[in-house]
């Protein structure tokens, strides 16, 4: 398609463009509200990306501020913790991506299998609850669980554990809270997708003698696959963006845990808490975006090589 297009002459391309517009005007019209919305609230503000390379001076406009090159990025890379911070961020996110592609799917399939549909509704609804509890509140619930003196775990008769001073437990605790909070929410997507599957397919499979397990494998999972792949690709793009609320609030500011809880967003927050430099936080965000962008392009390329229909674009 593209080759043909580049081969045509300039004026032909132009008439082709108008023709295309005319042929697609209904689509274009339908996309217009969203297009304008994104233009206004996402693309116009993107001018702010250059803040990452500027020295903040509030008395000037963004364009008049002085260029400083990559100076705003230095605090990210010229610090002794950079390796720990990046390692934590990436490893946690990898675990989250894997968990995100399995647990919610399992929950959704499980729900769809339950014979009693009323109970399924109850579980479905209850599973959504944790999503509404803010991280600040969850951090206090965690205290109720892990507190040395009054915590539920330390009052179960076992040798008390000094949870908030022992880093080795925390990767598990944080992963648990992440899954617990987000999976019920994400399961809704897959549950809805299962509900959208044509039930005739199952009936046909049943007549062909496929058992429930087989039906899941040949019908349910393949129809969820595009959603799973898409969510995973998008999550790869956020591999350097840590869930600040989780990593900042739940460890309750316990410094002893920082080696396993310090992720990029927490690091940036701590580093900039006092000097409040929006140029440096822009730089941090820019770095996260660029890395994510490249990774998505690569992932998307690989996916396209394997199965073109599953690629994002």
């Amino acid at each position: 398609m593209r080759k043909v297009q580049t081969a045509t002459k300039q004026n032909e391309k132009k008439t082709g463009f108008i023709k295309n517009i005319r042929n697609n005007w209904q689509f274009l019209l339908m996309a217009m509200p969203g297009f304008v919305q994104v233009l206004l609230f996402s693309y116009l503000p993107m001018a702010g990306l250059i803040l990452a390379f500027k020295s903040i001076d509030y008395s000037k406009s963004i364009f008049e501020m002085d260029w400083v090159g990559f100076k705003n990025f230095e605090f990210l890379f010229k610090n002794p913790d950079v390796f720990t911070v990046l390692r934590n961020t990436i490893l946690y996110n990898l675990v989250f991506i894997i968990a995100g592609a399995t647990v919610p799917v399992a929950i959704a399939i499980g729900l769809s299998l339950l014979r009693n549909k009323r109970m399924a509704k109850v579980y479905h609804g209850v599973g959504f609850l944790p999503y509404f509890i803010s991280w600040v509140i969850i951090s206090y619930l965690a205290v109720a669980l892990f507190d040395y003196r009054l915590g539920i775990l330390n009052n179960m008769g076992m040798e008390p554990v000094n949870w908030y001073q022992t880093p080795k437990y925390w990767p598990f605790i944080l992963v648990f809270f992440h899954i617990w909070k987000s999976c019920g929410y994400n399961a809704v997507i897959y549950y809805a997708a299962i509900k959208g599957i044509d039930s005739e397919l199952y009936e046909a499979a049943a007549i062909d003698g496929a058992g429930v397990g087989r039906q899941i494998w040949v019908i349910t999972v393949p129809s969820l696959k595009p959603t799973i792949i898409m969510m995973a690709i998008l999550a790869v793009g956020k591999i350097l963006n840590a869930d600040f609320g989780l990593f900042y609030n739940v460890p309750m500011g316990s410094g002893a845990l920082l080696p396993v809880t310090n992720v990029l967003d927490v690091f940036t927050y701590n580093a900039l808490k006092l000097n409040g430099d929006i140029a440096m936080s822009s730089a941090s965000g820019f770095f996260q975006s660029i890395v994510g962008f490249c990774l998505v392009l690569i992932t998307n390329y690989i996916v396209r090589r394997i199965d073109e229909s599953q690629a994002l674009f």
Binding site: F75, N79, P80, G255, L258, P259, A271, L272, N275, M280
Partner: peptide, 18 residues
Amino acid sequence: LSTQVGACANVRAEFEQQ
């Protein structure tokens, strides 16, 4: 010295409470 200030602030977050 924003780089040093940022790095030190993170060290502070790790140790002061301890």
